[in-house]
Amino acid sequence: MSERHQQFQSLLKSNAEAVEALLERLLSTDLQAGEIARPERLLAAMRHGVLNGGKRLRPFLVIESAALFPGVERETALRIGAALECIHCYSLVHDDLPAMDDDDMRRGQPTVHIAFDEAAAILAGDSLLTLAFDIVAAPETRLPDATKTALVLALARAAGIGGMAGGQALDLAAEKQAPDEDGIVALQAMKTGALLRFACEAGAIVAGASAGDRSTLRRYGETVGLAFQIADDLLDLTADAETMGKATGKDAERGKATLVSRRGQAWAENRLRELVTEAEALLAPFSHRAGILIETAHFIANRRN
């Protein structure tokens, strides 16, 4: 194992622990100014959907993208990462519902609607979505108001009709009418890629970086987002449920087309290598400071769960 890979693994673990600790505090019973009550069962459902381990890859990308630039407080980047993780977890809670992907397991434990009920899962997702923007806007997030506005806009665009939620709608439609390859690429760029793209771009926004640097990190995010989805589709074909912590083979079972199912495993493995090379080229202007983000691209392309 290379020194850089060891450093990456250590950072991934320590950042995940820091994100988990912050989410634990944000999802405590402590009332915030303007809140009337935090219903016990709703809070428990939210915590079940969020405080269940996971690599916390999206917050990691926020933190490490921000770390490319001088002067960014780690706690600030951590809070933006936690906000993004709330959006991600809300999407998983809702996607697992019977009306959507109908999954019983997530990260090796019962999904929220199984552990509680469907109404609790819907409300937990709604509350996590709202909490994300609360975290960005809160005074504890020490950023200028203009920066917070830029983050709120970028996050809303990534999560909404033109991003993740729209991608889920296209994914459901794909079960009835298979899209062509361009349609698959657009669907996956929205459903999976949009939040990963935001994670990388958010680091530049938090840092007040130039438009050029923000564009570079956005493109890096798009590249690793595509790699993430291809790797995910490859794992859906080749990994078992115990390794993944969720059901596998569901795309094939539903007749849902993916680039991997159309092009094959050899194509997917070669495309992943190409995407890692593209990611490295994008980060070249940042020199040695980008070592961790380059290692992240390798991790995403080669992950096993």
Rank of each mutant, 00 (worst) to 15 (best):
I294P: 03
G291I: 03
E280M: 06
T243L: 12
G221N: 02
G291S: 11
G34A: 12
E85V: 09
E175D: 15
V136K: 00
L151Y: 07
D232A: 12
C86F: 15
G162Q: 13
S210P: 11
F228C: 09
V206H: 01
G212A: 14
L131W: 01
E75H: 11
H88Q: 11
R263W: 04
A115G: 04
L129D: 00
A119C: 11
Y220P: 01
E3V: 11
R219Q: 14
A284P: 07
G108I: 05
A204L: 09
A66P: 06
S65D: 03
Q9K: 14
R106A: 05
S28E: 11
Q109L: 14
A45L: 00
A189W: 03
Q229E: 08
F116M: 04
R47D: 10
A199L: 05
R262F: 00
L129P: 02
S28P: 11
F116Y: 13
G208P: 06
A169D: 07
V152P: 01
E253D: 11
T192L: 10
L22G: 06
G193F: 04
S127K: 02
A146P: 00
M100I: 14
M244E: 02
V93D: 03
L31R: 13
L196Y: 08
C89H: 04
G108Y: 00
G264P: 10
R263L: 05
G81V: 08
K55N: 09
A297T: 02
D102R: 02
G71H: 13
A37H: 15
A138M: 07
S2C: 13
V260I: 08
E24Q: 15
L131H: 05
P110G: 11
V276L: 09
A137P: 08
R38E: 14
L68Q: 02
A33C: 07
L128H: 02
V224Y: 00
L51A: 10
I184D: 06
T248G: 07
P139T: 08
Q109A: 14
E201L: 10
A159I: 00
M164F: 05
A297S: 13
L123K: 01
H94T: 01
S14Q: 15
D126P: 01
L92T: 06
Y90W: 14
K148R: 13
L78E: 02
D182F: 01
A174S: 15
N15D: 15
L234C: 01
R254A: 15
A199N: 00
S127N: 12
D102K: 05
E295V: 09
I122C: 12
Q229M: 02
D236I: 04
L272I: 10
M105N: 03
D171E: 09
D251E: 11
P98F: 10
A67E: 08
L42K: 04
A44N: 06
E253V: 11
C89L: 06
T192H: 07
L187D: 02
L226G: 02
A150L: 09
I36M: 12
H94Q: 13
L237H: 10
E278F: 03
L237A: 12
D182I: 07
Q229Y: 01
R157I: 02
A194C: 09
L26H: 09
K256D: 00
L293Y: 01
L31E: 12
T243D: 10
L153G: 06
V224E: 05
A231Q: 13
A120V: 10
L51D: 12
I114S: 03
G53E: 11
A124I: 07
L51G: 06
Q109W: 06
T248R: 04
L12G: 05
R4W: 11
I294T: 14
D117A: 04
